[in-house]
């Protein structure tokens, strides 16, 4: 566990350093442009304005490279992610607004695909001779070739443009009052359907295959025969004995899947104009908004690291052999 923790910290450090190198590649003297603007707004001296601008963007080109690195790290640790060059607000504000939407879609999608996939896999393991088995394999292969963003494009084409059943862009309709009211929640749910399905549909096949393999191996265990011999209800055997034990090895991958969905949300969110982390990251790269790019990349990396750690912890709790 200590080793995992160390690797996690190293990963975050690498991401921080990478973004530091990145931000130094910014074209043009951004600090100068901001300083001039501040000077005009506040009527302060150029030196003062330059210092202020450097603090705002969390990038100070006037000091030595080492000092730059440490002042940048210091800025990050105090939550100063700099200023978004396109939105002219602190990057942390953009993150706070975007993160919930990404989390909503990715967690919904991951749990949906997990539950449905596991159910299908369990059925597949129980009915090995039926048509379901080859169908599952075909579906899993097909979904490997169809990444979420292509599924998203097809969904958009069919349900958004063709049938006009679902809203095509955004997270909610602008004229709905945001808050805890039914119309708003319904509107949000309706907007989330296609992004969620784009993530969930391809993932289902993988879960189903993994669950099928796991359940098949559990089916050969003695305790199932014992349970049957004890005359336990089939339903209880199915859910408590078979379902639970074959799902266990998949739970850690669930955390990893959440992490990778977080990292891979760019394309799906871009296609649906869904204002989550990935949407803003794609925009930031396109418009060369370095501070925003850096902030989103850092937060995504931390998210992945945290989810991975959570997976290890859950595994350690679930598997008594790993408990010390």
């Amino acid at each position: 566990m200590a080793r995992r923790l160390l690797t996690s910290l190293a990963t975050i450090a690498v991401a921080m350093t990478l973004t530091f190198v990145l931000i130094r590649q910014m074209p043009g003297d951004i600090v100068h442009q901001w300083a001039v603007q501040l000077q005009m707004q506040q009527g302060i001296s150029y030196e003062q304005a330059r210092l202020q601008a450097a603090a705002m963007i969390n990038y100070n080109p006037d000091i030595g490279l080492f000092e730059q690195y440490f002042s940048y790290l210091g800025g990050l640790l105090t939550g100063n992610l700099g200023l978004s060059l396109t939105y002219r607000i602190p990057v942390s504000l953009v993150l706070v607004q975007a993160l919930p939407w990404t989390l909503l879609v990715t967690t919904l999608a991951t749990f949906l695909s997990f539950v449905v996939g596991c159910g299908l896999g369990l059925l597949g393991a129980l009915r090995r001779q039926s048509l379901l088995d080859p169908l599952l394999t075909l579906y899993a292969t097909l979904s490997q070739a169809l990444p979420p963003f292509l599924i998203g494009l097809l969904l958009l084409l069919v349900f958004g443009i063709g049938l006009e059943w679902l809203p095509m862009r955004g997270n909610y309709t602008p004229d709905v009052e945001p808050g805890l009211n039914l119309p708003f929640l319904l509107d949000v749910a309706l907007h989330a359907v296609m992004p969620v399905m784009a993530f969930a549909l391809p993932a289902m096949g993988d879960w189903a295959l993994a669950m099928k393999a796991s359940a098949t191996s559990v089916l050969g265990e003695d305790y199932l025969h014992v349970a049957r011999a004890r005359g336990l209800k089939p339903r209880r055997i199915l859910l408590r004995y078979l379902g639970r034990n074959s799902m266990m090895p998949l739970v850690p991958s669930l955390a990893t899947a959440l992490g990778s969905a977080l990292g891979g949300s760019m394309l799906v969110e871009a296609i649906f104009g869904y204002p989550g982390l990935g949407f803003f990251l794609a925009q930031a790269i396109d418009r060369r908004d370095y501070p925003l790019m850096q902030g989103i990349f850092l937060i995504s990396t931390m998210g992945v690291v945290l989810f991975n750690l959570a997976g290890e912890l859950v595994l350690a709790r679930l598997d008594p052999r790993l408990r010390r």
């Binding site: 160390l6 990145l22 760019m266 995504s300």
Partner: peptide
Amino acid sequence: TALTDVFLTVPQFPVMAILAAL
């Protein structure tokens, strides 16, 4: 091994997109 773990954890698509674009 530590290096491999780090490269394995960093979000792949974002980092590839950023590098390719820049």
